[in-house]
Write a protein that binds this DNA or RNA. Sequence first.
DNA 1: TCGACTGAGTTATATATACGAGTATATCGA
DNA 2: TCGATATACTCGTATATATAACTCAGTCGA
Lengths: 243, 243
Amino acid sequence: MSPESTPLYLQLKDRIASDIAKGVYKPHSRLPSQRDFGEDHGLSHMTVRRAINELIQEGTIYGRQGSGLFVAEPKRDAELGPLISFTEDMRLRGMTALSKLLDTRIVSASTSLANILGVVVGHPLVFLRRLRLADNEPMAIQSTFLPSSLVPGLLDLRLENASLYQVLQAQYGLKIVDAQTSASADLASEEEAALLQLPLPAALLATEQITFLDDGRPIEFARSLYRGDRYRLQPAPRKPPTR
Amino acid sequence: MSPESTPLYLQLKDRIASDIAKGVYKPHSRLPSQRDFGEDHGLSHMTVRRAINELIQEGTIYGRQGSGLFVAEPKRDAELGPLISFTEDMRLRGMTALSKLLDTRIVSASTSLANILGVVVGHPLVFLRRLRLADNEPMAIQSTFLPSSLVPGLLDLRLENASLYQVLQAQYGLKIVDAQTSASADLASEEEAALLQLPLPAALLATEQITFLDDGRPIEFARSLYRGDRYRLQPAPRKPPTR
DNA sequence: TCGACTGAGTTATATATACGAGTATATCGA
DNA sequence: TCGATATACTCGTATATATAACTCAGTCGA
């Protein structure tokens, strides 16, 4: 599940979450007590608490003081949020993602791109254009812009089939935590239809996404053209206004 | 700020959050160390850590191991969420919404609609098909299904230009609080293109929305076909997982 | 019979402490 | 001058422990 290096509390959290997903613990049934979890896995109470706490915050389980911990009603729809990478998105849909690099260049930021990415006009941007495949079928054409100052030497790396976000994390220590997505519809051009193996005329779902780092800075602007017949955008449900 | 009874870590969290909001700590500037926070407020390191942790998870601050804690860039952009009605949506975009009723009927629930709306198969549903205008230009075709048991006599009311949600609220006391939206792209049929005054071929943004009441029951399923050239769907940014 | 009480078990909060890992700065030696 | 090294400080994780607040079941006594 999780590599050896990941913190214990995350390993435990993943384990409990997957047990719930697998149905080992059923909705509204009681979980073992925090102490029991600790003894079973050789962990201290507080470490268990931390795993429990995150699961509670995510709404997977709920606790009633004095009584116990219980499995929450499953979310009616898996979270298929806007901040998920294509690779991750496809994985959740049960498909395997591949990429084909169509073009890679350094370009200079236009006024609107500079504004979106928080750099000065003319600032060099890494530009990637990729054909995205799901189960070896063309699914989308994605154009991505990143401030090259944040990802020096990105174009020298192997980007064919790696998740870009994993590269950003592993190579540059950049943590992606949020994104904004918007969508519209367009007719495919001849070139686009050919790449996506669609007969003309064809409708494409055009999305634009701005991705943010943990410090709130924008790291990426991506424009994607999905096959309208095969892809359905499913943003995460709006959270109830808490507090 | 917080009552005396609230946990210390929440009091501290609120306090730091409001200091950041008030500008005491500016974006990307360093915060006092966790130990200092503890000494200042007479709290232990771990208690401080818990407050910090929640702020990090919410994206308010970010931490760099070995270096310190920093204020994150403030979130941009107001919520333009999926649960907004067409009328409200257009108002926020600075346009005025009008409707033209194309069809109103009582239909009986198919298997999939029954499933979505939480009624038995064959249950009567109110069906509305409306042409939606923004500033007197056609913008979308919207087909809506509601369980007629929840809205008896709805078809006798004037629905031409009122917001459906306002009617539900005012006439039936139904409070809409949430919605799930998904989107794809389609080619317009001849009839659709004619209604939307588009030349063929034309791309449409097709959305499906399930709307929920405050008690969690689904109240409406709506399928909308927006003009791809004039409408951009802008879901709300993903919320941090708040308790 | 029924209500009050007791006690075991549970979550939730808080502290003190230790250590690993990363960062930044100052120091020292060549 | 410049590079390696030491060092002090930081976050992040993990443990052991204590206590408050709450739930629940069973017991006891009127």
